Computed example of a mutant assay.
Amino acid sequence: MFNFKEIMSVSLVLFSVIDILGSIPIILDIQKRQGHIESEKATIVAGVLMFVFLFLGDSILKLFGIDIASFAVAGSIIIFALGIEMVLGITLFREDAEEQSTSTIVPLAFPLIAGAGTMTTLISLKAEYEQANVMVGVVVNLLFVYLVLKLSKPIGQRLGKSGLNILRKVFGIILLAIAIKLFKTNILPTPV
Rank of each mutant, 00 (worst) to 15 (best):
V17S: 06
G22L: 15
E38I: 04
I77Y: 02
L88S: 04
F80G: 11
L12T: 00
K32L: 12
L21R: 01
S11G: 06
I84C: 11
S9W: 01
E6T: 04
I78F: 14
L54H: 02
S23M: 12
I20G: 02
V45H: 10
D67M: 13
L28F: 08
L14W: 07
D19H: 00
V17G: 06
I26C: 10
V87E: 04
F55S: 09
L63Y: 14
I27H: 02
I37M: 05
V52S: 13
G57V: 14
K5M: 13
D19F: 01
D67Q: 11
K32F: 07
V52F: 14
N3H: 08
I7H: 09
D19P: 01
L49Y: 13
A81C: 10
L28G: 08
A46R: 14
V17P: 01
L14S: 09
V48S: 02
I84N: 06
R33I: 00
V52E: 12
E40V: 12
G65C: 04
F4P: 04
L28V: 06
M8P: 02
M50Q: 09
I60E: 05
V13I: 15
I7P: 00
L82N: 03
V10C: 11
K62G: 12
S11N: 05
A72I: 08
A74L: 15
S16F: 03
I79T: 11
K62I: 01
A81R: 04
K5R: 12
L61M: 14
A69D: 07
F4E: 10
I84L: 15
F71N: 11
M50C: 13
I18G: 05
G89T: 00
I84A: 11
Q34D: 06
I44L: 12
S39G: 00
D67T: 03
I90P: 01
G22T: 06
I37C: 04
R33K: 14
I84D: 05
S39D: 10
V10M: 09
A81W: 00
F64G: 09
T43Q: 01
V48L: 12
G65Y: 05
F2R: 05
M8F: 11
A81H: 00
F53S: 09
L12D: 01
E6A: 09
S70C: 07
F53D: 00
S59Y: 14
E40D: 05
I68K: 14
G75N: 06
S11I: 08
T43L: 06
I26G: 03
I79F: 07
F53Q: 10
A74N: 01
L56S: 13
V73F: 10
I78G: 08
I26S: 11
S23A: 13
S11Q: 03
V10D: 02
I77E: 03
I79H: 05
I66M: 14
L14G: 03
E40K: 12
F71M: 15
L54G: 04
G57P: 03
K5L: 14
I44Q: 04
I37R: 02
I78L: 15
L14F: 08
E85Y: 00
S9L: 14
V17F: 06
M8Q: 06
K5S: 10
N3V: 10
E85Q: 12
Q31I: 00
L54F: 01
G35P: 03
D67I: 07
P25V: 05
I26N: 10
F51Q: 00
